[in-house]
Design a binder for these strands. Sequence first.
DNA 1: ACATAAAAATGATTTATATCATATTAATTT
DNA 2: AAATTAATATGATATAAATCATTTTTATGT
Lengths: 232, 232
Amino acid sequence: MVDLNKKICLECRHCFRRNVLFELLNDKELDLLNNNRTEVFFKKGEIIFKQGSPLTHIVIISEGLGKNYIEGPRGKNLIISIVQPYLINGGPGMYVDMRHHSSLMALVDSRACFIDVNIFKEVIRKNSIFAEEFIKCFSESNIHTFSQFVTLTQKNMEGRIAEALLYLKNDVFKNGSIKYITRQEIADLTGLTKESTIRVMKEFKNECVIDEEDKEITILNENALQKYADLG
Amino acid sequence: MVDLNKKICLECRHCFRRNVLFELLNDKELDLLNNNRTEVFFKKGEIIFKQGSPLTHIVIISEGLGKNYIEGPRGKNLIISIVQPYLINGGPGMYVDMRHHSSLMALVDSRACFIDVNIFKEVIRKNSIFAEEFIKCFSESNIHTFSQFVTLTQKNMEGRIAEALLYLKNDVFKNGSIKYITRQEIADLTGLTKESTIRVMKEFKNECVIDEEDKEITILNENALQKYADLG
DNA sequence: ACATAAAAATGATTTATATCATATTAATTT
DNA sequence: AAATTAATATGATATAAATCATTTTTATGT
């Protein structure tokens, strides 16, 4: 009979190794993380962690896709990032108040790995190279937030949608077509209303800057989008 | 004759110790930082470090006040934070591309301490408690950025100005009156134009929510401001 | 296959905020 | 003290984007 625990363990170590960050850990450290993890399946639309709730685990999506968003004061969401597999979802609360400062929702059926945050911090404390790379990841997402911040406060609708589409194409879907993202979500990425988003997307479609088939958005003219982003 | 080097050294260690973070370092580590630092005076309006330039040193303002801002694509600035003495100005670039992703300008005549970033990182690598506290500081500023992001994308003029004034009063000037900050700077903190900022400030003055004498802004009714922030 | 719900689309209207133009006051510089 | 520059103030006007009201299309559940 197959030892299911063992199987999950091996799977997980595989999952760990898919993020180059974990290559910096030795077997003992990997085992430590592995022995303090749980794996949970989420259906599309389910919340993986919720803003304000205790931050007890860091989350790695091993299969699927998520959106990381801040719930604004009157129900309006601001999407900070679209989360692909193997990225570490810690969040600034893990070193401040042990609370989540944003929510993570599954955009498609997803599998998520929960690692005890204290164990994770212990590994960071013990392995300074790993710590440094963790800070690096954190910093990279920070740089993206900065640039999104400027875009949303200083660019017009076309510029903001163009930036969001370029982000989705290049950073999230790695040059594939954009899937599983609704107009409302593009609105939440850009701080616009869904109606405005729909109008700009239609404008881009009419100008053959983008195309859409079967809910898949393809970017036909990246230069045009870049121009919108630059002029916006 | 007084040994000036020694004097600056002692001063600096004093400056280090004013930030509780440095209490976590041992003498050897403090010496290491101390031996790899320079102190520079800046006049009001001078740039301490410039967005895009190489990040070779972390900066601690030991006297004075600064503004940390992102220079937007078409000349419009976004102020991320007002920087008081003893705070560490690293920035996300120090673990990514060794470039500054924002600029720091002196708001009044200021003294700034430059510490070699590689030495600073070496200390972080060697002292895991210090590293953890550094991540904590970084995370706290991150949480503030998140909240400012939501405010600027989801609140109206009054709400944004109210949030900025509360930030200045409580976080920057520690319940003293708000000084050295122009209308243009409040505009850059809120993503508004200076004209709109002037109008809202006047509205707040008329309603006796704030008062201004000799360029010093006093908050007369914090509850009213909080209400504007909540409803905005 | 039908019913229900969710997403996308569209036009009309409103409104919050920016822009423009100009004046006044305060702060620096010469 | 005069001249120049920077900051604040104010009114008129324009406009980008939100809001509101419906409709159409697509997806999901029973």
